[in-house]
Structure formats: structure tokens, C-alpha cells
């Protein structure tokens, strides 16, 4: 069965708009009958990804593919990339600035939360080229 596709462009450094894609996808999925824990898991893991795109990558693209049994989320950016992925995946590690921290981010839980709430989490990153993340949440 062909997936239903939703695409979003996340602007860089605009934290008032970060969350728009996650909120929009959540309301669309709700209308499609997705509820409960899967809906929350999709919302949270995507929001963390969206914030990362805004904070660290200068923006990026989000693609959501909705299947009857799962939702696939793709986050792609052409940002600075992550030099040490295993370090970035550790809870508490953060490279966020003071300004970002004052907004309530930078707890070093972004990638760990994405991994925690998604049923599948894949990340590829190259310094100077960007980061590509795929998450799957089962419905």
C-alpha cells in the first residue's frame, strides 16, 4: 500500500516556529485515527528532531510517510554534521549555546529522546555535509 506523504521545511534559528511541523503532523495523524502512545511517540521524537534542525543545522527538511502499520520520519539537513555520534547520543551531552539553554533546551536529551520514543532510529552524519535521520514508530 502506498504511503501518505507529508513534507515540511524547518527554518534555521527560528525557535518560535520550531514545533510547527510536529504540531501539524500530530493533528493530521489524529484526524487519520492515530491516538494514544504511538501519536505521542511520533510527536515527541519529531519535535526533538525539529528543534535540532532549528538549533544545530540551520534548518532542514522533514518527510513523514504514513502507512497503515507505521509512520516513517526522515530528517535531512545540510548542516555542520556530528563529529562523534555516540557522544551525541549520550544523555546529558549537549553542544547548545547559552542562548539556547535559556529557552529551556540544551539538556542533552534530544537524540536520546528520539531514540527512546521511536521503535527504530537510524542516524548518519558527516562533518561539513549534514545529518540524515530515519525514525520509525509502529502504530
Amino acid at each position: 500500500m502506498e504511503a501518505i506523504k507529508f513534507s515540511y521545511t524547518v527554518p534555521g534559528d527560528d525557535f518560535t516556529r520550531a514545533g510547527d511541523a510536529s504540531t501539524d503532523l500530530k493533528s493530521k495523524l489524529k484526524k487519520m485515527g492515530v491516538t494514544g502512545a504511538p501519536l505521542r511517540n511520533i510527536s515527541i521524537s519529531l519535535y526533538e528532531g525539529e528543534i535540532n534542525l532549528a538549533i544545530h543545522a540551520g534548518g532542514g527538511e522533514i518527510t513523514a510517510l504514513v502507512y497503515p502499520e507505521k509512520v516513517e520520519l526522515y530528517l535531512d539537513d545540510n548542516g555542520p554534521g556530528i563529529a562523534d555520534i555516540s557522544l551525541a547520543l549520550q544523555e546529558g551531552y549537549s553542544s547548545a549555546t547559552e542562548e539556547i539553554r535559556s529557552l529551556g533546551f540544551g539538556a542533552g536529551m534530544g537524540l536520546p529522546n528520539m531514540k527512546k520514543y521511536a521503535d527504530e532510529f537510524h542516524i548518519e552524519s558527516e562533518v561539513g555535509k549534514g545529518t540524515h535521520i530515519k525514525m520509525v514508530v509502529n502504530l
Partner: peptide, 13 residues
């Protein structure tokens, strides 16, 4: 808590 990712990680529905 005030750290948003912390709330997302450990807070619950």
C-alpha cells in the same frame, strides 16, 4: 522541571 527535553524524556502523559 524547566528543561524541555528533560520533560519530554521523563515526563508522562
Amino acid at each position: 522541571g524547566d528543561l524541555l527535553s528533560w520533560v519530554m524524556g521523563y515526563g508522562q502523559y
